[in-house]
Design a binder for these strands. Structure first.
Length: 898
RNA sequence: GGGGGGUUAGCUCAGAUGGCAGAGUGGCGCCUUCGCAUGGCGCAGGUCGUGGGUUCGAUUCCCAUACCCUCCA
């Protein structure tokens, strides 16, 4: 067996298959292009999916790749296993060779065997293979052509040896090659390839795509069967380096060695906490470096959320080993040193990695601290009540709501001699998962498989076109032959001038009309296979009149005129072309690293997201606007070029791989300032954009900024709105454009001054009034009371006045030594309020109860009220009681004091 | 996409079955001190995220909405 480093293995593999007529295709992004069914690229075949399904055709029939892959979210999730086994990773590389209708089983098996035996010089006695029990053809290749001992061929079932992409589409038997490491993680002495103990390592999976599964589940033979294979680089490196674990290979040892150096503890490849932590840290840092290079940022949804979970798991283990953030960055740099030769993007993005990891660490500390606080409170409560177990509800809430890791909660519990009800926790966790699953179920029309030819799009040149209606889908995606009049749904046609939403450009609106009626299109979308869906409502007079078929009407194969709303389309095109200009300007002002993160244009405005770490300054925004408007005023011609993907890639045009481009791509050239892949529609020359103005700049996620802007007429509208506002203000203040600012400044200061003066005036007025009212207290024994009705006071004013009376009266009593048998008084003030009710408040001191008095008053006055012992208020809309307010209240007080 | 939580003074956060909005810290002033650290006293600083509703009364309850955190998909 050859001893190869991982980089050598990768090279050898690619060279071998290149020699066998395969085209080396670079690894695609970790973000699958135009594929929402998976979160991350998780196998080598992902970038070739459309070739296997036949949606598009490659210009080559054999390919070889080393593909970046992730399994840490969605259907394939290995995250929790990482660090605990010898062979699970969140990020890994898959080596693969592919045949698209070219060679099949015989060659695929021979290539694999030849590579293993001849190139890697692996001892054939250590290899075992599996085939599907019904795959006689595959079995015979192994037995007769390769001449492998029958005892080494395992015939297995669907669950291990049948592969399919989804419920429908291409699928087929697979054959796997296992390597006997002679070492079982579980200490098994006797077992075989079907055992999960790690002794038999699956090193190569060959998928024979030979069937097509229909909606009814039936299989039919594919005319041109294909091959999809995958060999895990990390596993094979481990085999060739003859070590017990992927982590002991040169793929991970550089990082583990660094952890040893930092902590001063030797890595033992064991199951203890330290060794697990070292593995987790190595794996997760490597993954984080790669995710950073894909412009994925930690967030609370989708891929960003997976990234956040990986980072949090990394931090948890880093804390256990007392690693700090600069240690982690240092290890991250080692990832760059070991892997950037093959993946140069990670070197360029290292700054982003540094920022992400340190920002996220700060955030993590925040959630840790708040969690620790809650946990400490709970623990001391339990201790006080002598309870020995923290219940699952609490731990779940801590985790679910506050993001506090469960294992840390368990640690803290055991430090305090407490247990955690883990079963209860798991139950709640399961409930949440089920709940979340149930809540899915909106139809994704873009993912429909309608089994129709792609719609011919003529809308680049035509906005009106006669076309044939070939189908109608209702809102539940049922194909209706005779949709009733007034039904909403989707019209499908053989061709159309309507642009369907894609590439961040809104779909067209407009009208589809025929002799007896029309269909108002409010949006246009398309399926992944290119069938255009015009959404709207049928309005057909024939539907009402045709009694024979109720009010339904057959639209199938009817010719209709498809008319795009030209005005909206033109405005959208302005915005779209302006987006390209803005992109060019951004690269000029902020540098070429500020690349596109997404964009959306409709007829009203354009939105552009890009990565940049801080808010744009006022000056930068102005600069962008000036540059873009200069582009517009230069009236550059917009040239569209249609070309092969290959040549386009070499032309230096900007492209973004979360977009899906066909084999033929369109390149949009604007002057010599912008060149981008783009399937959207554009103005003929930049002059017709008219004008460009940024209306907002904001942040969408950390590290991503968003610019929103308007063009042409839309800007005119915002100018009008602003102008009207300004004019209204000018007229109101009887001023003019030149003076208005100074006038407002003056008014503002005047207002502040007057308000302060007013407050003081009111205060001194209240003081005076309070002083007067102080004299009106009446006495019954040691109690005194003041009852007064006042006109047009607000509740707040009553409160304030009463408080002043109280302090003045208090002062008077305290000054008067002879009256020292305790302070017991109540102040009751009432007023009209907004001419619709009587309000009254009571402030009491000593043993008088304001709330009780207010209750009694409310009974008498037919109102409601309440409060506390020292303060209460009430109200009534029974205005006629106002005249007797004082006498009534006095009666109540006298009665109360009796 | 769904669930949970949050938004109160410049900052960190309390708060009440609905009844006059608080602490710590920072800011300013004064005192203690030869001076500094410190300590003591006082002052300023609030649309209680926004908009509706219920109520005599809402920062608190209800509805909607924005933003942030978090879990699940």
């Amino acid at each position: 067996m050859k001893y190869l480093l991982s980089n050598e293995l990768r090279e050898l593999f690619i060279d071998y298959f290149k020699e066998k007529g395969h085209k080396h295709i670079p690894s695609s992004s970790l973000i699958p292009a135009g594929d929402d069914s998976i979160m991350f690229t998780n196998a080598g075949m992902v970038q070739f999916k459309d070739y296997f399904t036949g949606i598009s055709k490659p210009s080559f029939s054999r390919a070889v790749t080393a593909q970046k892959c992730m399994r840490a979210g969605g259907k394939h999730n290995d995250l929790e296993n990482v660090g605990k086994t010898t062979r699970h990773h969140t990020f890994f590389e898959m080596l693969g060779n592919f045949s698209f209708g070219d060679y099949f089983k015989n060659e695929a098996i021979n290539f694999a065997w030849d590579f293993l035996i001849d190139k890697l010089e692996i001892d054939a006695q250590k290899l075992f293979v599996t085939v599907h029990k019904k795959d006689e053809e595959g079995y015979l290749v192994w037995k007769d052509k390769i001449k492998i001992d029958e005892k080494r061929i395992y015939k297995l079932d669907d669950d291990t040896n049948f592969w399919q992409m989804g419920d429908v589409g291409p699928c087929g038997y697979s054959s796997e090659i296992f390597f006997d490491t002679g070492f079982s993680e579980w200490g098994h002495a006797e077992c075989d390839v079907t055992c999960d103990c790690g002794r038999y390592l699956e090193v190569w999976n060959l998928v024979f795509m030979q069937f097509e599964r229909a909606h009814n589940g039936k299989l039919s033979n594919l005319p041109k069967p294909s091959i999809d294979t995958g060999m895990g680089l990390e596993r094979m490196a481990r085999v060739l380096q003859n070590v017990k674990s992927n982590y002991d290979s040169d793929v991970f040892m550089p990082y583990i060695t660094e952890i040893e150096n930092i902590t001063g503890i030797k890595y033992q490849d064991g199951n203890n906490l330290y060794d697990t932590a070292a593995r987790v840290i190595s794996d997760h840092i490597r993954t984080s470096v790669f995710l950073s290079s894909e412009s994925i940022f930690p967030s609370n949804e989708g891929r960003g959320y997976v990234f956040r979970r990986i980072l949090r798991r990394l931090f948890r283990y880093a804390l256990k080993l007392n690693l700090n953030i600069s240690n982690l960055v240092y290890i991250g740099n080692t990832v760059v040193l070991t892997m950037a030769a093959f993946y140069p993007e990670i070197r360029e993005s290292f700054g982003i990695f540094e920022k992400i990891i340190s920002d996220e660490f700060e955030r993590f500390k925040g959630t840790l601290n708040s969690g620790i606080k809650l946990l400490e409170d709970e623990i001391s409560r339990l201790k006080a009540e002598k309870i020995k177990i923290i219940n699952g509800d609490f731990v779940f809430k801590l985790y679910d709501t506050y993001g506090f890791p469960v294992d840390l909660a368990i640690d803290a519990a055991s430090e305090n001699n407490l247990n955690v009800d883990l079963a209860g926790f798991e139950q709640l966790m399961q409930n949440q998962k089920n709940y979340s699953k149930q809540k899915k179920g909106k139809i994704d029309f873009t993912n429909l498989d309608l089994n129709l030819n792609p719609t011919v799009f003529v809308g680049y040149n035509e906005l009106e076109e006669e076309a044939e209606i070939i189908g109608f889908l209702d809102e539940e995606a049922n194909l209706l032959n005779n949709p009733e009049n007034n039904t909403t749904g989707f019209i499908i046609s053989d061709s159309t001038p309507f642009y369907a939403e894609s590439g961040g450009q809104e779909g067209d609106k407009g009208i589809i009309e025929w002799q007896t009626g029309y269909f108002k299109v409010d949006k246009t979308i398309k399926t992944k296979s290119g069938v255009f869906l015009h959404h709207g409502r049928i309005t057909d007079s024939a539907g009402f009149e045709n009694g024979a078929v109720g009010n339904s009407c057959n639209y199938l194969h009817r010719k209709a005129l498809f008319k795009v709303d030209e005005k909206l389309r033109k405005m959208t095109e302005s915005n779209h072309s302006a987006t390209h200009l803005l992109h060019a300007a951004l690269r000029e002002v902020l540098g070429s690293t500020s690349s596109q993160q997404g964009s959306y244009v409709d007829s009203e405005k354009l939105r552009f997201d890009f990565n940049y770490s801080k808010a744009l300054t006022h000056e930068e925004i102005r600069k962008l606007e000036i540059i873009v408007n200069n582009f517009i005023f230069s009236n550059y011609a917009v040239e569209i070029e249609e070309t092969e993907m290959e040549t386009a890639l070499h032309s230096g045009a900007l492209h973004f791989f979360d977009e899906k481009y066909g084999d033929k791509v369109r390149i949009v050239n604007i002057g010599n300032v912008s060149k981008e892949f783009c399937g959207g529609t554009h103005v003929k020359s930049t002059g017709s954009i008219g004008f460009f103005k940024i209306i907002s700049e904001s942040s969408v996620a950390s590290g991503i900024r968003r610019i929103e802007a308007v063009t042409g007429y839309n800007y005119l509208n915002t100018v009008y709105i602003q102008e009207d506002n300004l004019n209204n203000i000018i007229v109101l203040l009887n001023s003019n454009k030149a003076d208005i600012y100074n006038k407002i400044i003056k008014l503002y200061y005047d207002y502040e001054f007057i308000e302060k003066e007013n407050r003081e005036l009111k205060n001194s007025n209240f003081m005076l009034k309070a002083g007067e009212l102080c004299k009106e207290f009446k006495k019954i024994g040691k109690y005194s009371y003041l009852i007064k009705k006042l006109d047009s006071f607000t509740p707040d004013e009553l409160k304030e006045l009463a408080n002043m009376i109280k302090s003045k009266y208090n002062l008077g009593i305290l000054a008067n030594v002879s009256d020292s048998n305790g302070i017991n008084f109540i102040i009751i003030l009432g007023s009209f309020y907004q001419n619709e009710k009587i309000i009254y408040i009571a402030i009491a001191e000593g043993s008088m109860d304001a709330a009780k008095i207010i209750k009694l008053m409310s009974e008498k006055l037919g109102g409601k009220g309440g409060g506390k012992k020292d303060f209460a208020q009430g109200g009534t809309s029974n205005l006629s009681k106002y005249e007797e307010f004082e006498t009534d209240t006095e009666g109540i007080i006298k009665n109360y004091l009796k």
